[in-house]
Design a protein around this nucleic acid. Sequence first.
DNA 1: CTGTTAGCGCGTTCAG
DNA 2: CTGAACGCGCTAACAG
Lengths: 339, 339
Amino acid sequence: MAATYKDIRRLTGLSLATISKHFNGGNVLHANRVLIEQAASDLGYQVNDFARGLRSRRSMTLGVVLAELNSTFNTTIVSAMEERLREAGYGTIICNSQGSPAAEAEAIRFLIGKMVDGIVIVPVGDEVDGLAAAAERGVPVVAVDRAIARAAVDAVVIDNRGAIASAVDLLAGAGHTALALLAGPDTTYTMRERRIGFREAVKRHTGRFPADALTQPDPVNIEGGHQGFRRLMRLAAPPTAVVCANYEFTLGAIIALNELGPEVPAPAIVGFDNLELARIIRPRPTLVSQPVAQIATRAAELILERVRGEAPPEPRTVVLGTELVIGDEVTYTNAGSRA
Amino acid sequence: MAATYKDIRRLTGLSLATISKHFNGGNVLHANRVLIEQAASDLGYQVNDFARGLRSRRSMTLGVVLAELNSTFNTTIVSAMEERLREAGYGTIICNSQGSPAAEAEAIRFLIGKMVDGIVIVPVGDEVDGLAAAAERGVPVVAVDRAIARAAVDAVVIDNRGAIASAVDLLAGAGHTALALLAGPDTTYTMRERRIGFREAVKRHTGRFPADALTQPDPVNIEGGHQGFRRLMRLAAPPTAVVCANYEFTLGAIIALNELGPEVPAPAIVGFDNLELARIIRPRPTLVSQPVAQIATRAAELILERVRGEAPPEPRTVVLGTELVIGDEVTYTNAGSRA
DNA sequence: CTGTTAGCGCGTTCAG
DNA sequence: CTGAACGCGCTAACAG
């Protein structure tokens, strides 16, 4: 049903080769270009990517595999990245691995089948099954947010340890000694790194490692952060400051904090991600802010360079710094206690 | 580089046709099946979707176009839908139209180029540009969450007016007469419908339509809800009850509510979506709950039926009911006032 | 059940 | 600058 070169040939009298050249930026007489454009728009012609891809072995399409579709951090990065890639002439296919390594491998196979020219992935864990398949077919891969162990792929990550350390430094400087961390399981790269950063920083300030108990909320979402925070507050000696290792935990902790009665001494909170929070909550919380736009831009650059064959053979890792955005009060207190 | 049927033929001595039949569920001797499987795994063979699609004019792939990638509601539905479609043997390509009709049209073109067998769309507005192109090529479309004006496509929506009416009924029954609505602009189907439902229900209870002033927060996100709620509270005669027409506004309103000092009388709030809120916030807020799982399932069913040619020619609209999940107190109060 | 043959729509030689 | 011919990898007829 869809129009093809043949239809355009019928309308213009030109040969298939000329028509092809027109659509691929070759040298074609201006008069003929106009003719072809006219016919194409009359017919509602659209190139058949399958035929083109089959022949050229390129799809001008990049794949994105997300470990979590329900994550503002991920979707924000993808949206920004898409824009860059679009400007470069590439379409984007988004796949959802739903936190499952099996689904992740399937997504990569799916994308390879779609003949994507490259893949950007927020990996589920430290091992990515489909990587070998991609490598075999010469499909470059760039990891974002989480590095992939023992894999020779480009990566864009933040300085997770430094990020948490800056939070701990701030709190220690304000006199806090009883610090706690809300972080997910160590199977996730970012969570592991942030926990290490936390432990090291606390050790540096207090001379000993913090107790780890009860600091791994489950599930890793708002509810987990909420429950984790409440558990911390129920301890015999609750922390006076809590660092939240991701956005979901931060939101959960703040909600829980707001629920505390004024009689409970509110701990200081340093959150993670999503600067929007700082704009809508009063008093403004202190947050570790990831350079989301930069992450997206650098990831787009890395994959585009690979795809275009402009990149050096060895894998590159880009480490971006974070910013500690100080809130209204270093010691964040809930609204109730202001009254 | 990638292996093809020819490579398998070389290893097995079988013909291309037999190999093709094997990969398409045709009748092939068991012995030969084993032979082919062995060769395929040795070669790391993976079907070339381009060649297959070019020939069969089917891709076994469905496209999803989202007006908002940063929306829990959308991503939840997509995740659930993906699962159904995967079970049915279909892959899913997710595209982001970023609230832009132009990007939406481009996404549809992109998907048509990828020869998707069908498209599920959460439309940006009432008109969808690419629809004609899809229709021409016989690509069925199913709209989700928002109906498309004057378009003959299947749709899955909720009873938006009834949903809001149930909230108003509850509040009116609790004695509230000064009601306000936080809703987005009428250019969005759901927002328009919910506003109409609100106005009608209020009229029914109070005998007159509510004032519309200051009830369209901008932007349509958490911050908008936060600001909108604060504006309402600053009115000379603030409402005693606020209905929030989507999740983002609900969250923003609750955050703003928690920031109110105890001296300010807290209005009742009825929120929208995301039952998770009700699990993590105390006291539990009252929420209009959308049947997310059902929406996903029905949408998947509709598009699968269309794709398989099992659907009647005329467009179908599925309207699903919502549930009003009563919180701890019909008159929701902020934590501070409990003390 | 298997093999042969003929394209799907397009990009790319190579002549002209 | 243009046109004819070939083939990308696979499926769909048909014959065997």
